[in-house]
């Protein structure tokens, strides 16, 4: 006699499958990344993955949990990849290691491991390094292509001498700086027309990476790995806010399209704000959570001191998740009848 309770049928679903599909969905974006900005990102992904798996194994061992199945769930890899994709690809290797260690050890395992972390681990890792090493984390490579690999590798290994040749401001950063330098005399249109780093949608190159993420994200929605709520609310809120300010003052504020295809908007909408563990879980809660995260991201990237605000937006909204979930519990089966009953009794 076996001791298993019903149900005896299970859907062939597993955390590993979920995570593997998320990783798969990141591939188009990564491919575009490599095409436009060189293969450095692949090195960073490798560093981050190795660090994450080692840290995960070590923490599981320390916590006395079985290492095998937990490593096989691939959740550490997802964290590592997302973190690597949010960091500039030419940061020194140890910075990636520090960020990943912080994400896995502190943000994930000190809170109880998979499923227990109140904050998005990748974003915690990113926040730690951007606060601790702001200069390093704001050095992004310009459009470079595969031939820049040697120089990029040098930068990753810590030789930062030839860095200036590599780096270029990100479109978001460039726009902000240019507008500031113009001291109210410049206009967004002029800046965008001026430089060679902008494309028809957003930043040159960045728009393709963004499209890659968009494709991957839509794949996940189609596969029912995630619901439409978070991406739709995230992109919607970003577009509405950017659109309102753009209509209000088109000279000082970039178009919604620019904001959607610049920085980490699409990565955030489909891969970061959708983290189920640290995000809201109810349908209405997801809408609120994502809209809040997008609003904060927009405000930080346009008015704040950091080049982008996706990470902080998500982290700040992570704080609100318990409250959001509490107030957005969906009505259960028969709730309408119960409400009617309550009204009748109240009368």
């Amino acid at each position: 006699m076996i001791d298993q309770p019903a149900p005896y049928l299970l859907k062939p679903a597993s955390v590993t499958r979920v995570m593997a599909q998320v990783l798969l969905a990141l591939v188009p974006g990564i491919a575009a990344y490599v095409w436009w900005f060189g293969p450095a990102i692949l090195v960073q992904l490798a560093i981050a993955s190795a660090t994450a798996l080692a840290a995960e194994a070590a923490m599981l061992g320390l916590r006395g949990k079985p290492v095998g199945p937990a490593l096989a769930d691939l959740s550490a890899l997802v964290t590592a990849w997302l973190l690597a994709l949010t960091l500039p690809p030419i940061v020194p290797w140890w910075l990636t290691v520090v960020a990943v260690l912080f994400a896995i050890v502190v943000a994930k395992h000190l809170y109880g491991g998979l499923g227990q972390n109140p904050f998005n681990p990748a974003m915690v890792g990113f926040a730690v390094v951007i606060v601790s090493y702001p200069a390093l984390v704001s050095q992004w490579p310009g459009i470079s292509g595969p031939d820049a690999f040697a120089a990029q590798l040098d930068a990753i290994l810590g030789h930062r001498a030839g860095l200036d040749a590599l780096t270029g401001a990100t479109p978001l950063d460039h726009l902000k700086t240019a507008l500031k330098l113009a001291e109210g005399n410049g206009s967004v249109a002029a800046v965008l027309a001026d430089a060679g780093i902008y494309g028809p949608l957003g930043g040159r190159g960045w728009e393709w990476v963004g499209l890659g993420y968009l494709a991957g994200g839509l794949f996940l929605v189609a596969r029912r790995i995630m619901t439409w709520h978070v991406p739709a609310a995230y992109l919607g809120a970003m577009a509405v806010l950017a659109g309102a300010l753009w209509l209000f003052d088109g000279a000082s504020f970039a178009s919604p399209l620019f904001h959607l295809f610049s920085g980490g908007t699409l990565l955030g909408a489909f891969f970061i704000a959708t983290d189920p563990v640290s995000g809201s879980t109810t349908p209405r809660g997801k809408l609120l959570f994502a809209a809040g995260a997008a609003t904060l991201a927009y405000l930080i990237r346009v008015f704040g001191g950091y080049p982008d605000g996706v990470a902080f937006g998500v982290l700040l909204m992570n704080l609100c998740v318990p409250l959001i979930d509490m107030y957005t519990q969906p009505p259960i089966f028969g709730a309408k009848a119960m409400a009617e009953l309550g009204r009748k009794e109240g009368r």
Binding site: M1, I2, D3, P5, P66, P69
Partner: peptide, 14 residues
């Protein structure tokens, strides 16, 4: 519910 981390541990449920 007895959480069988390793599926071997066949303790009778009742």
């Amino acid at each position: 519910p007895v959480t069988a981390i390793r599926p071997a541990a066949a303790t009778p449920l009742h």
